[in-house]
């Protein structure tokens, strides 16, 4: 602004400097990885409260058409109830699960009491990935609430994602339907191992792609798929969903289509299991 004649020449200079700066950033984040997280953490922590507030504005706008009386109060109440239902449902499911098939599985795995109860934290979603390519979302709990990278995130009694990054007062969750998501899973009925992969192409139908790992798997429509015991990140036995379609494949079944129990279209509250598989494994080996 000071010297207007110079401005056009300096455009190139500014361009070159900024390109170099972003190249350095890219190199840094590829090489240093976790060490430059401090940048994301600091700036993200400042942005989070604002997003939280604006999100309630957004919800209010969205809710305006459906309900006009005492919106905010009702929505606040609703949110609290939702989180209550969420945790109660999880408790019920947890009990059911513990009572039935898990018992036999636990014996099988000699995991005994360690998996009986998970500690959980409820969180609400404050913003979604600002683009159309990814399915990440941000929740209002972070390292100060004990959230760590790799923790499992549940919704509607089913797995819905994993903590991708945990910052001071917020965390990024990679949703199960994200194209990069891949979960090691198994069929409850047959014990066949598989991968449950998110797929952008299938997101529209709200389904996931199951990739079978075993030869000649014995799966059929309606089979329940849970997280497997071999995954490093996911705790075993968390419900993912049900097989809804097995496409015709000559002879050997290699893929199937799964409908998750979590409703990704209407996520507002999630439950985070604060126990991590790696901790539990460590504890076990220490005993």
């Amino acid at each position: 602004m000071e010297n207007r004649k110079k401005k056009r020449i300096s455009a190139k200079l500014v361009f070159v400097i900024l390109m170099m700066l972003s190249t350095i950033l890219i190199l840094l984040s590829v090489i240093a990885g976790d060490r430059i997280r401090i940048i994301n953490d600091t700036i993200g922590s400042v942005l989070t409260p604002a997003q939280k507030g604006l999100n309630s504005v957004g919800r209010a706008v969205a809710g305006f058409f459906s309900d006009n009386k005492d919106k905010e109060q009702l929505m606040e109440e609703n949110r609290q109830l939702e989180s209550q239902i969420e945790s109660l449902n999880a408790v019920i499911a947890e009990n059911d699960r513990a009572m039935s098939e898990i018992d036999s599985m636990r014996q099988l795995l000699e995991m005994k009491d360690n998996f009986k109860e998970y500690n959980t934290v409820g969180a609400s979603i404050i913003s979604k990935d600002s683009g159309n390519w990814y399915d990440d979302f941000i929740i209002d709990k972070g390292t100060k609430d004990g959230i760590e990278k790799g923790m499992n995130v549940l919704s509607n009694n089913g797995l819905c994602g994993v903590i991708e990054e945990a910052y001071y007062n917020h965390s990024v969750v990679r949703s199960l339907i994200d194209d990069r998501s891949s979960v090691s899973a198994m069929s409850v009925n047959s014990g066949d191992l598989c991968f449950v992969n998110g797929s952008l192409e299938m997101r529209e139908d709200g389904t996931l792609l199951v990739e079978m790992l075993t030869e000649a798997p014995k799966i059929s429509e309606g089979d329940e798929i849970v997280t497997s015991y071999i995954s490093d990140i996911y705790l075993p036995g968390i419900k993912i969903g049900y097989i809804t379609e097995i496409p015709e494949q000559n002879g050997n079944i290699k893929t199937a289509i799964l409908t998750p129990v979590a409703d990704f279209e209407h996520l507002t509250m999630v439950l985070i299991i604060t126990d991590q598989k790696s901790d539990i494994l460590q504890k076990e080996s220490g005993d």
Partner: peptide, 25 residues
């Protein structure tokens, strides 16, 4: 013009990277 365009672009892109991207920059 270009000068303002790429300065604003840098910070706008950085904001996206910080909040969601896996590769900063």
């Amino acid at each position: 013009g270009s000068t303002d365009g790429c300065i604003v672009g840098f910070f706008a892109g950085l904001l996206l990277d910080i909040s969601f991207g896996s590769i900063l920059g």
